[in-house]
Design a protein around this nucleic acid. Structure first.
Lengths: 82, 82
DNA sequence: CTTTTTTTATGACTATAGTCCGTAGACCAT
DNA sequence: ATGGTCTACGGACTATAGTCATAAAAAAAG
């Protein structure tokens, strides 16, 4: 599974956990509404600054969001070298 | 202090701690030699994929590199709202 | 059902991440 | 001096992050 897809899924979880719409999250993070949608579907790769902005809007630590991606990628069985 | 400058400084620390040259790190991460230099000087903002690639080359967890940036930004006295 | 809110999708666009060429300076050894 | 290794920096370039306007599908809600 690619990094951006995993990140997108966790971004969505965080957002829904906060009860925010994509539009509200976009507004808080000074990002475009449609871009949040692209991120959640794994169609874009956020820069470090964007990650920090999103995390702040979600009252989360950027490192925690990254850690979740990291852990899911580590436990992902697909595409491991034999 | 900006996110990218802080990240750049920590990237350099990690790299020097591993005893790697910019060129070696670039090769391991499939990035350009000059781009590593730009990153370390805070002239570029890496995407999440680039962060993961760099971390892997440095035998570090991406979330740990982010956490160091996070902590330094949190303890940075400059530009805090009164 | 109808209405409203939310999300997906497209296409055209601007800003910037990341590449690739080179040059110059610093440092360390011959 | 000269050669090697390393990093800073330049400009020109390609790829993609992120914006904007809009339409339409999907979900909630009434």
């Amino acid at each position: 599974m690619s990094i951006e897809v995993v990140f997108g899924r966790h971004l969505r979880k965080f957002r829904e956990g906060k009860g925010l719409s994509q539009e509200e999250l976009a507004f808080r993070s000074n990002l475009d509404r449609t871009y949040i949608s692209l991120l959640e579907r794994g169609k874009r790769r956020p820069t470090i600054n964007t990650i920090f902005a999103l995390a702040k809007s979600l009252d989360a630590a950027p490192s925690d969001m990254i850690k979740m991606v990291e852990l899911e990628l580590a436990t992902d069985i697909t595409g491991r070298e034999p």
